[in-house]
């Protein structure tokens, strides 16, 4: 299941005279490496000390509610925003100093796929391919339009397109220069169920059949669950949890939320024990741990031994449950616990 383990070194890439060595692209598994990334807008911290790694061949799910900081992070990955602090490396190169080289190999949709309305689908694709540094042939463009089901409307102006068609054209634009890394910000927004399924299949195919690395953001866990092999959840700019979907969705690796009379001192006591290694970052006061569900009684015993006054120990059975609880937890003052 884990796509990281799949062999992705299928070809040596030399694209548009900008060659990435085999090492750069494939042997170094990290395609995106974000360290301590912070973005401050005046008084608001949109992204706070965020670190994560996307490996070659990953379909990396970037989950969070609207306003969680997903788009801000993605905009920093695409050089639309300047990070306040922190570093971004893509293809093992510093994004700030190797922007042009890196972006040649990146395709993206950021929020709505806005394109030139007064140009046709074909013209949009043609020129975006050109400025991405690709020599484009007409049949290549038509192929791409065929892939997203727009070949019949190739010469219609984009302003006549429905939201779904624009979204599909946006994907075609993101892929026209055959990038190694594809960043899709909420790619299923505004699509009908069939469209959503199509995009989902496309993402899976890009990863499986073409060995592309995909970072896809969504506020819907159901979307991410089905396609991502690794998932990062952020909320209010903070990383909540990161892991493989196998891990996060595995019932054996349950998320346990603990509430006590004094969470801070409880946390300090837990850190000193073997359970400390299971502690997860948590934005609010709740203590979050990650371990197999079978070990909950053992954990409760330990809490008793540590004289921790337990209010609740709540196991989460699925990532969705966890995601929902996290987001509700942050929207309300106190989490509802059993």
């Amino acid at each position: 299941m884990n796509k990281v383990s799949q062999p992705v070194f299928k070809k040596k890439v030399s694209v548009r005279n900008i060659s990435f060595t085999f090492d750069e692209l494939y042997l170094m598994p990290a395609i995106i490496e974000v360290k301590n990334l912070t973005k401050q807008f005046k008084d608001v911290t949109a992204v706070n000390n965020l670190s994560f790694t996307v490996n070659a061949g990953d379909v990396y799910g970037f989950l969070g509610q609207n306003g969680a900081g997903k788009s801000t992070t993605i905009r920093m990955l695409l050089t639309l925003l300047q990070p306040t602090t922190g570093s971004i490396h893509i293809f093992n190169k510093n994004l700030q100093t190797n922007r042009k080289k890196i972006l040649t190999q990146v395709g993206a949709i950021i929020e709505k796929p806005d394109l030139y309305k007064y140009l046709t689908a074909f013209q949009n694709l043609f020129f975006f391919a050109k400025i991405s540094g690709v020599k484009v042939l007409e049949n290549k463009i038509m192929e791409q339009l065929e892939m997203v089901g727009l070949s019949e409307r190739a010469h219609s102006k984009v302003k006549t397109f429905s939201q779904g068609m624009k979204q599909r054209l946006g994907i075609a634009v993101a892929l026209i220069h055959d990038p190694e890394l594809i960043i899709l910000d909420e790619p299923t927004n505004g699509l009908d169920p069939q469209g959503i399924a199509d995009v989902r299949n496309l993402i899976i195919s890009l990863s499986k059949n073409f060995g592309k690395t995909v970072l896809v953001s969504s506020h819907l866990l159901t979307e991410i669950e089905l396609i991502a092999n690794r998932i990062l959840i952020i909320d209010k700019g903070n990383k909540i949890v990161e892991g493989t979907s196998d891990e996060l969705l595995d019932p054996a690796k349950t998320i346990v939320a603990l509430n006590t009379l004094d969470n801070q001192s409880a946390k300090n006591k837990i850190v000193a024990t073997q359970w400390g290694q299971y502690l997860q970052q948590s934005k609010n006061d709740t203590i979050i741990l990650k371990f197999s569900k079978d070990r909950i009684p053992e954990f409760v015993n330990q809490l008793v031994q540590l004289n921790i006054e337990v209010l609740s120990v709540t196991p989460r059975h699925s990532l969705e449950d966890y995601f929902l609880s996290l987001t509700t937890a942050n929207q309300h003052v106190e989490p509802v616990t059993v």
Binding site: L78, T79, L80, K100, K101, A108, D114, F128, I131, G133
Partner: peptide, 14 residues
């Protein structure tokens, strides 16, 4: 305003 600026900036052009 149209939203195409962000797409342009993600292209490998300084």
């Amino acid at each position: 305003n149209m939203g195409t600026l962000r797409l342009l900036i993600t292209k490998p052009i300084s």
